[in-house]
Every structure is written in structure tokens, then in C-alpha cells.
């Protein structure tokens, strides 16, 4: 395998991992507050289609990002209302959000299928990009890739070092105790859910504005689900999420690697790899039941009603 190819593989792995990273970062904050939102795939799709339509309409990529973030948080608000306010089953509601987003995105996007836009340009970082091999692979990306990395650091700092992070974790670990010391549990959960939605919208926009860039039905192809698995894989730790996202990115572009090694395998079989990898990772992680229980936010998936104190 030559060096040129190695650079290409690294470059592609980071690009492919970025949407997973964005979505998983949103979901981990949401889960830390005790809410499991299985609607990531639906919110991603809505973010992708609304972002794309906004760019088609206005010609501005900024408007596309804004639209995607707004629609993502709006969708999550719908979810939040049902599970936080009404206490609906989080699993069923999340699934409904995905089915709803899949259907609605296909419907409103049917007019822009096949249209093309000018996606985000690459922004090489001066000097760093000139480093051999890793320079062009790591420092020649679009603004969203850099933002995702930056978001990791900021979120890790907020979660681990600030009062906001402490509040968030208190709500997720023990909402009753948090409520008792005066934390507005429902408000914290709403905000966490909306952050998750905004990030999912952004992750979707990455698909339609950068990765392809165009809109087709189901453009996310299960990435929302893979991001959910990623959060478990990362044991709800933000540093691990970044690592996991780029590893999954690597798994998704393995056909490039195998090509480099001179193997020829049907692209349809290789397309299975990220999904197979997700299953394998899930099995390895959850086999240690005790560890998973220990690491997951304690109140994950359980509704909290401040009117009924336990």
C-alpha cells in the first residue's frame, strides 16, 4: 500500500466519521440527562433535507446549517413533549420520530431530488497541511470537520469541569435528588433533548451539504442508529465517542483499504461492514452487563414526574 493511499484513507475516515461524531455528541448529552432518544435517524434526515432545501432556496450554506439545526431541535421538542411532559414510552416515541422523519423528509424533499449545490469548501490549515502524509489527511477539511473536533473539547470541558455538566449528570443519575436540591429537572431534560436534536440536524446537514452533496431519500442510511450504538460503545465518554466515530468512519470506507491491498470483493458485501461492525461492537460491549449498568446514566429511559415524589 502506498503512502498516497494511506493519506486518502485517513482523509476519508475522518470525513465519514464526522456525521457520526456530531450526532453521537448530541445523543450523549441527551442520554446523560436520562432521556434515550431513538429518533436520531429521523432528525438527521429532516436536518439533511431542510438544510439542503434552504441552500437551494437561498444559496447560502449558513442558512442551510441554520435550517438543519432548527428543524432538528424542533423535532426533538416534539419528542421531548411526549416523553418528558406526557411520560410516553421513550423507545416507542423515538421510533415514531424516526419513522415520521423518514416519511416527512422523503415527502418534502421529493422536489429537490437530483438538484446540485456548491457544498462546503475545504479549508486547509496553513503550515499544518504541509506535514507529509498526515497533513493533507487531517488538516485539509471543511469547517464542519474542525467544528466537530472543537465541539468534542468544549463538551468534554462542560460535562466534566463545569456546574452545567454537574447539573446535567445529577439529573441523569438521580432526578429525584436533583429535584430535591432545586434543580429544574424537566427544564434540564428539555434543553438536553433539544441539543441532541440540533446536533442530529447538523449531522444530517453534513450528509446533504458536504458528504455527497445532494439530497436523496434515506441519505443517512442508518447512520443515526450507528451513532446510538456509538454512545454505548463509548461508555458515555466524550473522548471515546470521537475515537469510535473515526473508527466507524474507517470501517465504512474499508473498500478503499481493500482496494489498496489489491483485493476485489463485491461492493455490496463491503457495504455491510459498518453494520456488521456495529453488531460486533455491541456484542463485545454489552457482554459485560455489570460494566454497562455501571456506566450508563442511572435514570436512562425512565420518566420523571415531579408531581409524584418517589
Amino acid at each position: 500500500m502506498d503512502i498516497e493511499l494511506l493519506t486518502q484513507i485517513l482523509f476519508a475516515a475522518i470525513k465519514t466519521g464526522t456525521p457520526l461524531l456530531l450526532v453521537a455528541l448530541g445523543e450523549v448529552i441527551c442520554e446523560k440527562s436520562g432521556i434515550l432518544n431513538l429518533g436520531q435517524e429521523g432528525m438527521m434526515l429532516m436536518g439533511a433535507v431542510v438544510g439542503f432545501m434552504a441552500v437551494v432556496a437561498t444559496g447560502s450554506l449558513g442558512m442551510g446549517i441554520l435550517g438543519a439545526v432548527l428543524i432538528g431541535s424542533l423535532m426533538s421538542l416534539l419528542f421531548g413533549f411526549l416523553v418528558i411532559h406526557i411520560g410516553a414510552n421513550q423507545v416507542a416515541t423515538g421510533l415514531a420520530l424516526t419513522i415520521f422523519g423518514t416519511g416527512l423528509s422523503a415527502f418534502i424533499g421529493s422536489g429537490v431530488v437530483g438538484q446540485t449545490i456548491q457544498g462546503f469548501k475545504q479549508l486547509p490549515i496553513p503550515y499544518l497541511v504541509d506535514i507529509p502524509v498526515i497533513g493533507p489527511a487531517l488538516f485539509n477539511h471543511d469547517i464542519l470537520v474542525y467544528s466537530a473536533v472543537l465541539a468534542c473539547f468544549i463538551l468534554a470541558w462542560i460535562v466534566n469541569k463545569t456546574r452545567i455538566g454537574l447539573t446535567l449528570k445529577a439529573v441523569g443519575e438521580n432526578p429525584h435528588a436533583a429535584n430535591a436540591i432545586g434543580i429544574k429537572v424537566l427544564r434540564v431534560r428539555y434543553l438536553a433533548v433539544m441539543f441532541g436534536g440540533a446536533m442530529a440536524g447538523l449531522g444530517g446537514a453534513y450528509m446533504s451539504l458536504v458528504y455527497t452533496p445532494m439530497w436523496v431519500e434515506n441519505i443517512t442510511a442508518g447512520r443515526g442508529w450507528i451513532a446510538l450504538a456509538l454512545v454505548v460503545f463509548a461508555s458515555w465518554r466524550i473522548g471515546n465517542i470521537a475515537l469510535g466515530a473515526y473508527l466507524f468512519g474507517m470501517a465504512s470506507i474499508l473498500h478503499l483499504v481493500l482496494q489498496g491491498l489489491g483485493w476485489s470483493i463485491s461492493p455490496n458485501l463491503l457495504a455491510m461492514l459498518p453494520y456488521v461492525a456495529t453488531v460486533v461492537v455491541m456484542v463485545i460491549i454489552s457482554a459485560d452487563h455489570f460494566k454497562e449498568k455501571l456506566l450508563a446514566p442511572r435514570s436512562l429511559g425512565k420518566p420523571f414526574d415531579p408531581r409524584q415524589m418517589a
Binding site: L38, V91, L95, A221, G222, W225, L228, A229, V232, S266, N268, L269, A271, M272, Y275, V276, T278, V279, M282, V283, I285, S286, A287, H289, E292
Partner: peptide, 27 residues
């Protein structure tokens, strides 16, 4: 056996089945 999340594994198996079928029909 391994306590893995049924939702995620069944969804992943949906995608795997889809690509397996597409592969078979092309192969």
C-alpha cells in the same frame, strides 16, 4: 447470550439483509 441491545441489532440486521439481497441479485 450477550445482553446486546435488541433494537440496534435487529436494525443493523435489516441493513445487512438488504445488502446481502442486493449482492445476491447482482451475483
Amino acid at each position: 447470550r450477550f445482553n446486546s441491545n435488541l433494537i440496534l441489532t435487529t436494525i443493523m440486521f435489516n441493513y445487512i439483509a438488504l445488502y446481502l439481497l442486493v449482492w445476491a441479485v447482482h451475483g
